Simulated scan of single mutants.
Amino acid sequence: MGELRLVVIGDELVAGAGDPKALGWVGRVTARTPAPDRLTVLTLAIPGESTTALSQRWEDEVARRTAPDVDTRLVIGLGRADIGAGLSLARSRLNLANILDVAEQRRMPAFVVGPPPGATQDGDKLAELSVAFADVATRRRVPYVDTYSPLAAHEQWLADLAAGDGVLPGQAGYGLMAWLVLHTGWHAWLGLPDDAA
């Protein structure tokens, strides 16, 4: 195995916004990923980005960060912006499907992390959105991490949100997201032993 390059696309959750340690879930997962050779993680985040905007920009940005001799993989961190943007479930599904289909055409293995719980008034919509994203990924045999279901009633997650702005997690919340990623097929997807977590 030579260099492994992970390109992570998504919104402010991918950038770790709100984390006083500035690690977010991506930094925590990277720290727990013992790649045999060189591991490079490139985060391409745009705050508040919907899947429509993401689907329009990701290909060009990711293409600039790939090389023919480097194993490059795509990590998609999905946020909650589709709800605020008023996108239909069908549109959100289609946007993710298009990203995954193009990634497959480019022989770039993908891994999807779903949206975590946020403001309580959006709970039902977020739950539906997470299920829709999971279905799209599963149909394409792409690993999907459901962060919504395990965290919706999780006391530590809710306390962490409440301690901040009610939208972004802090250290504890990002730690919980990282744990879910690490224990939902992450090492298998990278071809690493599962006991690495």
Score class of each variant (00 low, 15 high):
116 P>N: 01
169 P>M: 10
140 R>C: 10
54 L>K: 00
151 L>F: 02
1 M>D: 01
185 G>P: 09
44 L>Y: 03
57 R>H: 03
12 E>Y: 02
64 R>L: 13
151 L>M: 12
109 P>Y: 04
86 G>F: 03
19 D>M: 05
101 D>L: 13
174 Y>K: 00
42 L>F: 03
184 T>E: 11
140 R>V: 08
32 R>Q: 07
61 E>K: 10
24 G>H: 04
123 G>L: 12
9 I>A: 11
91 R>A: 09
88 S>C: 02
7 V>I: 14
74 L>Q: 03
100 L>S: 02
103 A>N: 07
88 S>K: 04
100 L>Q: 00
173 G>C: 08
174 Y>P: 02
162 A>I: 07
155 E>R: 15
153 A>F: 11
117 P>D: 07
35 A>I: 08
25 W>V: 04
80 R>Y: 01
35 A>S: 13
196 A>Y: 12
139 R>D: 08
18 G>W: 05
11 D>L: 03
36 P>W: 06
51 T>W: 01
127 A>G: 08
80 R>L: 13
147 T>C: 12
173 G>F: 11
135 D>H: 14
140 R>M: 07
74 L>W: 02
73 R>S: 02
146 D>F: 03
58 W>H: 00
141 R>S: 11
81 A>K: 04
172 A>D: 15
5 R>M: 04
142 V>F: 06
58 W>I: 05
126 L>G: 06
146 D>G: 11
1 M>F: 03
91 R>E: 02
150 P>W: 04
148 Y>T: 07
32 R>L: 09
192 L>P: 04
150 P>Y: 02
176 L>W: 05
178 A>N: 10
100 L>T: 00
1 M>P: 08
77 G>Q: 04
169 P>I: 09
185 G>Y: 11
186 W>M: 11
126 L>A: 09
144 Y>P: 13
101 D>A: 14
70 V>S: 00
20 P>C: 14
162 A>F: 07
97 A>K: 06
131 V>T: 15
63 A>V: 10
91 R>V: 07
183 H>E: 10
27 G>Q: 09
73 R>A: 06
119 A>S: 13
154 H>C: 13
65 R>Y: 01
65 R>T: 01
195 D>T: 14
132 A>F: 12
152 A>D: 08
132 A>W: 07
140 R>T: 06
139 R>K: 14
121 Q>I: 13
9 I>P: 03
21 K>G: 09
131 V>G: 08
108 M>E: 02
29 V>A: 12
53 A>N: 05
164 G>R: 12
189 W>S: 10
10 G>I: 08
104 E>T: 11
54 L>F: 01
195 D>L: 15
93 R>W: 02
51 T>Y: 00
117 P>A: 10
101 D>C: 07
110 A>Y: 04
149 S>G: 14
19 D>A: 07
108 M>F: 05
111 F>W: 01
141 R>A: 14
194 D>H: 14
